[in-house]
Write a protein that binds this DNA or RNA. Structure first.
Length: 555
RNA sequence: GGCGCUAUCGUCUAACGGUUAGGACAGACGGUUUUCAUCCGUCAAAUCGGGGUUCGAUUCCCCGUAGCGCUACCA
């Protein structure tokens, strides 16, 4: 009789035709992978915001999967309909793609499902969850709960006033022990309900749990009858995690450490179904210092929490990845020093090195340093491509300029590049490039005679004219850097300038100035600034006509 | 309140229980260089506090303290 009522309840809750658990097990068989292959995933919520922390765990998960010849997939966790934002799913796939973090399964940037273990969007998996919620009810691992949110609030405040552990458990779990008749009656009256897990746990028991990063830990066993299916019939995170990571055959769940406390729930859920739980690795979030206190990088307060911030600044994606990799495995930077030419994918990431600290502070100094290093390793062609791509999205005027003068621009980027250790390390983000090189272009270069004189107060107009004239007479476009500089020295000496810095430093008063002051004249006339790369290279790139035209200003 | 995680230079971190506690970034100062950027060198900079265990503790244990997390029909 009791069983009959129970069945009736289940049939009302799930009136529709559902696949059986066995059918689903067959549909999503164990993956055929080699020995140590790891199946990892990220499970972002479509909130319309790509957090740097999501990118961090995506990168780590992707590395572990692919360095072990495994599978990395992306599953969209959109069971919280209240928080969903339009276009958010596209943002996730586009971001991953733009960072070159390739996933094997999931929704791609054309909004198509790829992979045999889908759907990869939780809201499209509701039939699957229902199959298993039904199974839980069938096996008496779950029950219907009609407690209203008001009743739950009241329960919690009573618990608080009595100083007992809050939650739905033990004697507080009223609906766990209700008779089937009463449940059926409530159901028939159309009252809202949730399905709760019938936890077999005892809070006084302590269980050992292994985490790949934290090692083996002891935690109290779960005794909460957590909700597995909400009143909108969508699963909660805990339940979706159980079903999805089982059916998708995830081997390693790498996620933020805010999940660590719910591990007892998760292992209990897996045990209740007799499923092998995946291995867990909980990583610390990236933090930020605010008035001497650490906190998680916040979506609201910190622009740098959003990866769009780095995109606007034009940080190379590679630099961000290397910075994140360094945060994940601090030995990455040593490896990089040893292997400057290798792709970061050749680095072997390890759980042992994955820090179990409470979370690193985001360090722009370090990012900047890494970024300069990354850019310095690029070829002129690569720099050109990167700057152009950035400019197309963020500075169309500059993009057009680069496009119009592409050969010239590429020449500019060859200056002091590709000379190994001594390569320039001055670019850290593409947004800085325009102001760095704009003087090369005639359209964005202007200088008057009076401005020139103002910037070179130690020499008269006639003297400047003489110096420049002598230079133009002796200048040969094909001169090597050494020949070129020798000529500059001759002119400098002829005008009373020192050609030996040490001597000049000893007796500055016996010279008109140093050869550096002569170089400065050309620097101002050609670039209208006092700090530039090597002048010989600049002249080569500018070409004789442009150089002479600019120098003539003072002649 | 309960449960948990974490604790080494400003930051990220390294150190089988035995080191002058190491490196990187940032900082200061010097050198090289036609300026700048590089490159090279030097300096400054840390084991949260208190108890144990031990010949010996940054390391192991306990107690504090602090930061962070969890304690939802959010993830």
């Amino acid at each position: 009789m009791e069983d009959k009522i129970k069945q009736e309840i289940i049939d009302i809750v799930f009136a529709e035709e559902l696949a059986t658990p066995e059918e689903l097990e067959t549909q999503y068989p164990a993956r055929n992978l080699s020995g140590g292959a790891m199946v990892t995933r990220i499970a972002p919520s479509p909130t319309g915001f790509m957090h740097i922390g999501s990118l961090y765990s995506a990168l780590i998960s992707e590395r572990f999967a692919h360095q072990s010849s495994g599978v990395f997939f992306v599953r969209i966790e959109d069971t919280d309909k209240k928080r969903e934002v339009e276009g958010a799913v596209e943002l996730i796939s586009q971001s991953l793609k733009s960072f070159g973090i390739d996933y094997d399964e999931g929704r791609n940037e054309n909004d198509e499902e790829v992979g045999q273990y889908g759907p990869y969007t939780q809201s499209h998996r509701s039939e699957i969850y229902k199959t298993f919620v039904k199974e839980f009810l069938q096996r008496d691992l779950a029950y219907l709960c009609f407690a209203t949110s008001e009743e739950l609030d009241e329960m919690r405040s009573i618990q608080q006033s009595q100083s007992v552990k809050p939650g739905y458990y033990g004697e507080w779990a009223k609906w766990r022990t209700k008779s089937s008749e009463e449940v059926l009656e409530m159901l028939k009256s159309g009252k809202a309900y949730v399905v709760r897990f019938k936890s077999p746990g005892d809070y006084a028991h302590r269980i050992k749990i292994h985490d790949e990063i934290l090692g083996t830990r002891e935690l109290p066993e779960n005794d909460q009858d957590i909700v597995i299916m909400k009143s909108d019939k969508l699963p909660t995170y805990h339940f979706a995690h159980l079903i999805d990571d089982h059916l998708m055959r995830t081997t390693h769940v790498i996620r933020g450490d805010e999940w660590f406390p719910s591990l007892p729930i998760h292992v209990q859920l897996f045990e209740s179904m007799g499923w092998e739980a995946p291995k867990f690795a909980h990583i610390a979030p990236i933090q930020k210092l605010e008035e001497s206190s650490k906190r998680k990088l916040s979506k609201r307060k910190d622009p740098e929490a959003n990866i769009a911030f780095f995109d606007e600044k034009g940080y190379p994606k590679e630099a961000i990845k290397e910075y994140l990799l360094n945060l994940a495995n601090s030995n990455f930077e040593d490896w990089r020093k040893q292997n400057p030419e290798k792709d970061y994918r050749e680095f072997q990431m390890s759980f042992e090195k994955l820090s179990n600290s409470s979370g690193a502070l985001f360090d722009f100094n370090k990012l900047n340093d890494i970024s300069k290093e990354v850019v310095s390793r690029m070829s002129a062609e690569e720099v050109y491509e990167n700057v152009s791509t950035w400019a197309e999205h963020h500075n169309t005027e500059f993009a057009n300029l680069l496009k119009q003068h592409s050969d010239y621009a590429k020449e500019i980027f060859t200056i002091e590049r590709g000379v190994g250790d001594k390569s320039r390390k001055d670019i850290k983000m593409w947004s800085e490039v325009q102001s760095d090189i704009e003087y090369f272009f005639d359209d964005s270069f202007s200088l008057t005679k009076s401005e020139t004189l103002e910037q070179l107060p130690n020499a008269s107009a006639d003297e400047l004219s003489d110096i420049v004239k002598s230079f133009m007479e002796s200048y040969n476009f094909d001169d090597s850097k050494e020949e070129w500089f020798a000529k500059v020295k001759v002119i400098a000496e002829a005008h009373g300038y020192s050609i030996n810095s040490k001597e000049y430093k000893k007796n500055p008063e016996s010279f008109k100035g140093n050869v550096a002051d002569v170089a400065k004249i050309f620097r101002i006339l050609l670039c209208n600034r006092t700090q530039t790369p090597d002048l010989h290279s600049i002249m080569k790139v500018m070409g004789q006509d442009r150089v002479f035209k600019r120098l003539s200003l003072i002649v």
